[in-house]
Design a protein around this nucleic acid. Sequence first.
DNA 1: CATGAATGAGGCTTCATTCAT
DNA 2: GATGAATGAAGCCTCATTCAT
Lengths: 207, 207, 207, 207
Amino acid sequence: MARPSDPSKKKKIVTAAITTFAQKGYAGTRIAEVAEAAGIGKGTIYEYYRSKEDLFFATFEHLMSDTNTLMDKVSQSATGSASKRLVAMADAIITSWLANLDIFGLVLEFWSATAAAPGRKRFRAAFRSAYSELRRVVAELIRHGIEVEEFNAQIEPEKIASALIGSWDALLFQGWLDSGFDPLGASQSHMKVVLAGLRHPTTADEE
Amino acid sequence: MARPSDPSKKKKIVTAAITTFAQKGYAGTRIAEVAEAAGIGKGTIYEYYRSKEDLFFATFEHLMSDTNTLMDKVSQSATGSASKRLVAMADAIITSWLANLDIFGLVLEFWSATAAAPGRKRFRAAFRSAYSELRRVVAELIRHGIEVEEFNAQIEPEKIASALIGSWDALLFQGWLDSGFDPLGASQSHMKVVLAGLRHPTTADEE
Amino acid sequence: MARPSDPSKKKKIVTAAITTFAQKGYAGTRIAEVAEAAGIGKGTIYEYYRSKEDLFFATFEHLMSDTNTLMDKVSQSATGSASKRLVAMADAIITSWLANLDIFGLVLEFWSATAAAPGRKRFRAAFRSAYSELRRVVAELIRHGIEVEEFNAQIEPEKIASALIGSWDALLFQGWLDSGFDPLGASQSHMKVVLAGLRHPTTADEE
Amino acid sequence: MARPSDPSKKKKIVTAAITTFAQKGYAGTRIAEVAEAAGIGKGTIYEYYRSKEDLFFATFEHLMSDTNTLMDKVSQSATGSASKRLVAMADAIITSWLANLDIFGLVLEFWSATAAAPGRKRFRAAFRSAYSELRRVVAELIRHGIEVEEFNAQIEPEKIASALIGSWDALLFQGWLDSGFDPLGASQSHMKVVLAGLRHPTTADEE
DNA sequence: CATGAATGAGGCTTCATTCAT
DNA sequence: GATGAATGAAGCCTCATTCAT
């Protein structure tokens, strides 16, 4: 009864699942399709994953961890001023996703998985902590910029961080919707403005 | 043969559909549930909508038009400097959605509907044009700010617009995920920085 | 509660039903279609007929009575030798149906209605008595031919009658299937042979 | 993805389908009933047949092929004069169907399937070619009878063939309607007359 | 009388999951 | 361990019939 755990096969399944879920969505994907894409039998998937839902969550975790890995790499390799590091981070994330825009649909599926009914609470929880962590990293960077007096002290690092991260996601979504849209360019333009804003004092409260 | 078209009943159905789809997601919703929520018979829904998918799209259009109405109201009523108007717009959108955060899950469903398979192309098309319009309106406002020399001339209105809009969506999403998160505060903080950035020249290209 | 009985409206409904059932079959016909074809409201049909099944049976009776009327006319107007009368009868029936081959599909529906389940026993009964009557008329004619020594006395009128009648139906069916097939020609050819056979003694029992 | 194709199971299903469709008609039959009659699960049927309609067509083909097999056997084994062979053929077909009169209702369903709407064109096509072939075989036999001067040269083999075949069908139908009716006797009586007619010259055209 | 909007029973079909091989 | 044939719960949708207007 103990399930097998050949990691190479698990990977093969998840990879196939990513492709298939991305193309057809969760509801539109049949387990048989994933199996076929993975070049294995339908029943075999159940040796490695308890259910379709479980497999879906596994693809989620897989992508999540890819993103985390990317983030770690970026934040470790980034050098220079806080501004440069922020821009590098934005560019890295967006560039990385642009290179895989074909599976961006999967992200949308994950987002919507945070909504629907029961058994999907883990998606919401995972997203929450992922965003939380991402905000922490970015906020840290901003805070650092303040400390070294690169950024103005009035700003609230956490809040800015959440908006920045959000803009990255949202620009990718717009790029996904509209192939004529350029998320990277938009992000860079936005980052320039934000960095300018971070350096200068915000005007005394309007009105 | 000719289907009935009592608009008040259509509205009753759509309203029920919004609630139900928002709570349980598209896949998790049974037509019978919507009917019950609308206080009518299951078959009656099919007098007004050809299919579940059609009803879903109708809820989409309904919310879309609500958002458009809101946008029109905001852009018409907004007065004062470009900055103030931008902030007003951001606040209006976010506040409006915060008041209906319980149906934000529906938006996620719509987002993911832009992905999956056939018969859903219209979602993508509708989103594309909606974003396009929203960008146009916001970019217009920014362009106006440049003309009156409130904003610095180097910025690219369309790109900034897309990032701003994106941040609103994405902050709402974070608020949806995490009830401790405050989208409005984050947006306001972000807007302040952006407005500061818009007023000041961006530094000479970083290397 | 008493049902109305405006006969002109009943006729309008049955006429519409004949056309529609003939084109789409019983199962493929919706009451709404019949109503539309009749130029009346869907509910009105139920003022005149208890159910779809009932309406179907009414179309059956209508056609049956048409056929009976035809038969009566033919058998009364026929003059001359028994042979001539038989041929006239065959020709009349086939010609009449050929002129309405577009509703022959309805006859097929009636035939199959003699099979399926309960509530359709009346179709079988009606057919049984209709065939019985038809056989009686044709057999009578043959018997008459025997009496006047036009036909050979060995033949069994009832059996020949049933085969003749059957051949008419079946040739029409073949014509219905294949527009290149000529039921009338085939019938005439067949009748000639049969009449020749009726006139001559059948050979002593073949071994 | 690839559907199973165990022929013995396909046969089991078709057999069950024949019984059930014959008893209750196409419309009156529920897939679940067929499954139960076949002793398998409802879903299993869909592993072997795409739809109810498909299964129905399969039963049609099955019976068609049975009939063809019978015809081949009869035409090959038949010896003796053309007359004897014709009678043998008639008797074989009728006897064979009489032995299975319980599923004759199915034939009626098939006949009516040549009418109704779309997706059923194949029934008509199959019938057309089946009748065409049957006519060919019978006409061939008649033509042979002419050649050996057993039959008179004036007759038209194709036309007589179509009428003979038709009479077999139609007599079976009458037997099906009325258990007191004897299709075999009627056919034999009819065949005798026809054979007598085939041997003797038809009278000069009856004005 | 006529209408057609409303209804819900009923059936086909899908597909995740199981389990014998 | 791997497989895929078998399964049946579940759900969309149709359409005959009703009945308030």
